[in-house]
Amino acid sequence: MAYQMNFTPVMALAPQLVEGALNTLILSGQAIVAGLAIGVVGAVSRTEGPRWLDRAVGVYVELFRNTPLLVQLFLIFFGLPYVGVRLSANMAAIIAIALNLGAYSTEILRAGLQAIPRTQIEAGLALGLSRLQVVRYVVIIPALQIIYPALTGQLTLTLLGSSIASAISATELTAAGARIESTTFRSLETFLCVAVIYIAMTFAFRFVYWRIGMWLFRRKAPPKPSLIADAIEVSRAGA
């Protein structure tokens, strides 16, 4: 049986898909900012904090990494009102995704911090760098460079994972697709379009991450042997 694909009814509702895609970006953008903030606090607590704090953050990390995002979402959206906290679908989705990403990014960032040996920091201080310079050039940037692939991969998974939020009718791309599917009955065409939009967003973000990586981890030219060479370089750069 040959099936004729017909994208016309879906294309007629294309503005809804565009709106859905924007909502996905807004939703996961908020969740990513909050999740990374949790991750930074969690990673620093685990490496620098007292033992009890390390343990407590460890429990949080294991709880959220070993249960599905969908169940976390249900627990926050359906479960919290039961104990008196009522949240909108979007708010519940942002909180659930942020807590989930927070757990993963805590571990990723911790791995980065632990990859910088203490002797490197001491060497930086011995060279007369200020504490701030040591934190920036010896700790943060090299640590970030080590974990960059894992971190950006996790951010991509978060963007794609936000499609789960459609289960509690948060406004985002998959929910928009489901609405179009139920009005046009063109399931295959609708979800193919949705898939293409997700793929395009993912590749766009990968490109952005790659550019940011190029800018962050660019190697400075090695120091010139003489001041004259330096001066020539400066005058060239100025020209």
Binding site: G161, S163, S187, L188, L192, V194, I199
Partner: peptide, 17 residues
Amino acid sequence: ATPLLIIVFLAFYGLSF
């Protein structure tokens, strides 16, 4: 680059057509 949920929907709703 595709969410799992969309792959599931494609297999469940899409391919029946």
